[in-house]
Write a protein that binds this DNA or RNA. Structure first.
Lengths: 213, 213
DNA sequence: TCATGTGAAGCTATTCACAGCA
DNA sequence: TGCTGTGAATAGCTTCACATGA
C-alpha cells in the first residue's frame, strides 16, 4: 500500500499513456523512451518519467521502457486486469453508440445492462444485451454487482438517474448529460459535455482568445 | 485587448459557469453569489471570483452577480454572440447523435456540413443537413467558411481526416476518436475519449486508488 | 451587513539537471 | 553513450484574508 495519495491529474494521464502503448504494442514496437513517447503525446519526457516513477521503476537505463511490460503494469495500476461490468442508462443514439463500441472493442469493459424509460426501447438489443426498464435498475445492478455506470439521458432526467444509481450501489459514474449533478461523498462522478468543449474551442477561434498562442 | 494570456484551465471553467447560469436564468433566478454558484458546482467561491475578475468586474458588492448579465458577458468572452458553423466528419451513430443534439438545441452552434466516406450514408439527413462525400470536404468547408469541426470517425481514419480538415482551413477540432493525433501549430485540437474516462474511474474503483478519498 | 475584487500566501504541478546504471 | 529516476528549482494554480463599496 502506498502511503501518499496520487493526484487525480496523474491518474488521468495514465490512460493516455496506455492508449499509446497499446497501439505501439500492436505495431510490434518493443521498447520506447520517455522522449519518444512524449513526442507522440505532446508531453515533456520528464513528466512521463515522474508520473511512472510514482508507481514503480518500470524503465531500463540506456534503453527506455519495454512497451508490452509497461502496458501491463499500467493496466494493473488502473485495475483493468479483469473486465469491469458497466451499466448504461439511456438507450438513445448516444447510449447505443457507446454501448456498441464497448461491445465491439471487447477490452477492459463489459456492458452488463442497458436501461431506458421508453417502453418502445425495452427488449431492443444494445451493446450485446437487451434493454431493461429503468424500474428494474436497482434489482439488476445489485444482482449483477455492477459498480460503474454511463449516463446518457437528457439533462432533466440526469439527477434522478444518478440518484437511482447511487442508491443501487454504483460508485463511479460517467455522465454525458449537459447539466451539473451532485453526488454524495464516496461516489466518483465525471461529466463529459461536448458542448462545453466546443465553447472553450470557440474562445480561441471567435472569442477573446482568438489572437493567442 | 488584454496584455496577459488567460490560462486554458480558466477558459475551460467558463463553459461550466455558463451552463449553470443558463439554467438559473431559465429558472428565473435574478442574482447569485460566488458562494452559491460554487456550492452548486463544487468549486470554491474565491476561484469563481478570481476567474471572472480576469475578464472584468461583473459583480455587485453585497449582492452578487446578475445571472442574466453575467451569462451574456461569458457568452461574449467565449465568442458565442453569433452561431458558429461546425462541420461533422463521420455520420455513424455517434456523429448522428451529436449532430442531432446540436440541431435540436439551436444554441451557439450550427451544423453546416456532415461528411462520411460510406456511399450508403451520402444524402441522408443528419443534424438538419444532407451528408456529403468526404471527397468534397475541402470545397464545402472553404465555401461555407467553416472553422470548427467534430471528428467521429474510427481511430484508423482520424489522422487522415484531421489532416484534411487542417488543409481545408479548420482551426479548431474536437475529436472523439480514441487515438493520439498530431496537428500543426495554429490549430487547436481537443480529444474526448470516453474509454480513457472509464479507465481513470477504474483506478478508483478496482485499481490502486480504490481505498482513497 | 454582505459579497466582490485582489494582493499575498500556500500549495500543487511541471521542468530542470544530474547521479547512476546498462 | 543513452536513458532512467529523482531531488531541487521553477512555474502555475488555488485559497486566504481583507479593504472596499453597496
Amino acid at each position: 500500500m502506498r502511503k501518499y495519495k496520487i493526484s487525480e491529474i496523474v491518474v488521468k494521464r495514465l490512460p493516455l499513456y496506455l492508449r499509446c502503448l497499446t497501439y505501439l504494442d500492436k505495431m510490434g514496437v518493443p521498447t520506447i523512451s520517455s522522449h519518444e513517447l512524449g513526442h507522440k503525446l505532446g508531453i515533456k519526457p520528464s513528466q512521463i518519467r515522474k508520473d511512472l516513477a510514482y508507481f514503480g521503476e518500470f524503465g531500463k537505463q540506456g534503453i527506455g521502457y519495454d512497451v508490452s511490460y509497461l502496458r501491463g503494469e499500467i493496466r494493473h495500476i488502473l485495475g483493468l486486469t479483469e473486465h469491469i461490468k458497466v451499466a448504461v442508462v439511456g438507450a438513445g443514439k448516444l447510449g447505443q453508440a457507446l454501448s456498441d463500441y464497448i461491445l465491439l472493442k471487447r477490452e477492459d469493459f463489459d456492458i452488463a445492462a442497458v436501461f431506458d424509460r421508453d417502453p418502445a426501447k425495452i427488449g431492443m438489443e444494445v451493446g450485446g444485451v437487451k434493454v431493461s426498464p429503468i424500474e428494474n435498475l436497482k434489482e439488476i445492478i445489485q444482482e449483477k454487482e455492477i459498480q460503474m455506470a454511463i449516463v446518457t439521458v437528457p439533462a432533466n432526467a440526469a439527477q434522478k438517474v444518478v440518484n437511482l444509481l447511487v442508491d443501487a450501489g454504483v460508485r463511479g459514474i460517467l455522465s454525458f448529460a449537459p447539466i451539473a449533478v451532485t453526488v454524495p461523498e464516496g461516489v466518483r462522478f465525471y461529466n463529459v459535455d461536448f458542448t462545453m468543449e466546443l465553447q472553450s474551442l470557440a474562445y480561441y477561434l471567435t472569442g477573446q482568445g482568438k489572437n493567442e498562442y
